[in-house]
Write a protein that binds this DNA or RNA. Structure first.
Lengths: 190, 190
DNA sequence: CTTTGAAACAGACCGACTGTCGGTCTGGAA
DNA sequence: TTCCAGACCGACAGTCGGTCTGTTTCAAAG
């Protein structure tokens, strides 16, 4: 990689890291571009050279977050052979990850409103949601024609339980409830 | 009610109605207070006299929407005796109502981001979610200790399927999937 | 080595927006 | 009639997102 491209990539990385922290801390609306500029020491011109606008910056941050989450989930199910068990394991891992305030605020609360539901789902499809759908299909736990819709509903349920953990009550209760919920949806183990 | 209080209430009603349409059409961020003022013919001072800020206005709009939805759901289950069937009926009705673009955009997409998840859920607790939890408890379909968490997850799943209807694919498929999903969670009918 | 083009960066500037503040008007109580 | 609180007004300040015109720097072409 040339020196120039490297510098550009480094700048983007730095900006995304800072924006990620600010978005997570104060939300999308509560974070000003000015603050990102100030903390990064960058100029307006430079930032707008790399990102078309505030929402594009947010999208880049979300992409980074989702990508990390996806990798972590993949790692958690590595070695689990039974597709059904892998599904449960992956979902529980997901719930734990989504308990991180950064993931919560950025990926679950602000993303739908900022990007619009369509773009949000499109991104999830490329990351964690894609895995969930594949796992659900592999498990053959639900009729084929329901796979997509059930995967969506499951995803929503998991996200919700992750948000509930933050509300209080401890993660143990939420984990137990989620596991029970999953077993119900997946049906009796054959 | 005195003439003054009446006038004030009428003003609030008018503003909320206009803001509701604009919020639904352009989202929270995409709607300017200025536009609300212009359409209502009100002055800035008057609006800020009634509502502390843009988010307070949004909250008032959301309150109105949720209240309507709650009433409609109550009406739909009137006459259904079996608690389990009432639960299914109410949920399906909810999904249909949430298919309305106004409800979708305001109550499902923007609300968590604008009010914050806590305030959003607190409001839902007072309306539709409160009913769902009560119905789930009455149905005795899930263990007592899971009632609250399962109700949350169910709610999320229903909301998700409502959003999916808008994405396309027709409401029939979503309804069938939701009903199947519900039956799985509630377990076999005794 | 020089030229040239493009990417990276800088920061003044603009329009739009939210929220504030002093002030006016009026219904209804004292 | 007096007086106050609440409804309403609109100018204004401050902030913010985004644009525009440069300037610097690297590297490829000549």
């Amino acid at each position: 990689m040339s020196l120039r491209a490297e510098r550009g990539a480094a700048t983007r990385e730095k900006v995304v890291a800072i924006a990620r922290r600010l978005f997570a801390e104060h939300g999308y609306e509560g974070t000003s571009i000015e603050a990102v500029l100030h903390e990064s020491g960058l100029s307006r011109g430079a930032l707008y050279h790399h990102y078309a606008g505030k929402d594009a910056l947010f999208e880049a941050v979300l992409e980074a977050v989702e990508s990390e989450v996806g990798r972590a989930i993949l790692a958690s199910v590595r070695g689990v052979d039974d597709p059904r068990q892998a599904l449960v394991t992956g979902c529980l891992e997901w719930m734990r990850l989504a308990g991180d305030p950064v993931v919560r605020r950025i990926a679950l609360i602000d993303a739908p409103s900022v990007l619009g539901w369509e773009r949000w789902r499109a991104m999830e499809e490329r990351h964690a949601f894609g895995m969930l759908k594949a796992a659900l299909q592999a498990s053959r736990a639900v009729p084929e024609e329901f796979t997509d819709l059930h995967a969506h509903m499951l995803l929503a349920a998991i996200n919700e339980s992750a948000l509930l953990v933050a509300r209080g009550g401890g993660p143990e209760a939420a984990e137990a409830a989620l596991e029970d919920f999953l077993r119900r949806v997946l049906g009796p183990t054959p």
